[in-house]
């Protein structure tokens, strides 16, 4: 029996991520990579368009990850969460690097979406 709160892998909710880079910079093993760009959006009633960060890529190298959870704890927007998955062995070291597509699927079912 594996408990729901087990630290198996880390899931990502991209809609909650503001590309603030805190997780990337605080990671002790430098195992997170984030790519983003800025865009200007005009809002009705606003004088000028505001600049927002748009997330392009988010990768975690689970070969390096020491499962400390600092990224999960420090994320100001709760965009990262632990997930109990364990069956993620790979036949190459590169196969342990996972991007947004996998990380989204690992967003724990027990966690409500922070965007809601």
């Amino acid at each position: 029996m594996i408990p729901d709160e087990a630290h198996g892998v880390i899931g990502l909710q991209p809609s909650a991520c503001t590309s603030c880079m805190i997780c990337v910079r605080e990671c002790p093993t430098w195992c997170i990579e984030l790519e983003s760009h800025t865009e200007e959006v005009s809002e009705p009633g606003a004088r000028r368009p505001k600049t927002i960060n748009v997330l392009d890529a988010f990768r975690i190298d689970f070969g390096l990850c020491m499962y400390c959870g600092i990224c999960v704890d420090l994320c100001p927007f709760d965009a990262l969460a632990w997930s109990p998955g364990f069956d993620h062995a790979a036949s190459s070291a590169g196969g342990l690097v996972h991007g947004i597509n996998e990380l989204v699927n690992w967003w724990p079912a027990t966690n409500p979406s922070p965007a809601d």
């Binding site: 594996i2 364990f86 993620h88 790979a90 036949s91 342990l96």
Partner: peptide, 26 residues
């Protein structure tokens, strides 16, 4: 920095540490 610098690795199991179930899955 990784035992694959020493010898060919067939399967890599991620985790720090991985669960026993992860070992069996690997």
């Amino acid at each position: 920095k990784g035992i694959d610098q020493l010898l060919p690795v067939t399967v890599y199991v991620p985790g720090c540490p991985p669960r026993p179930e992860a070992l069996i899955a690997g």
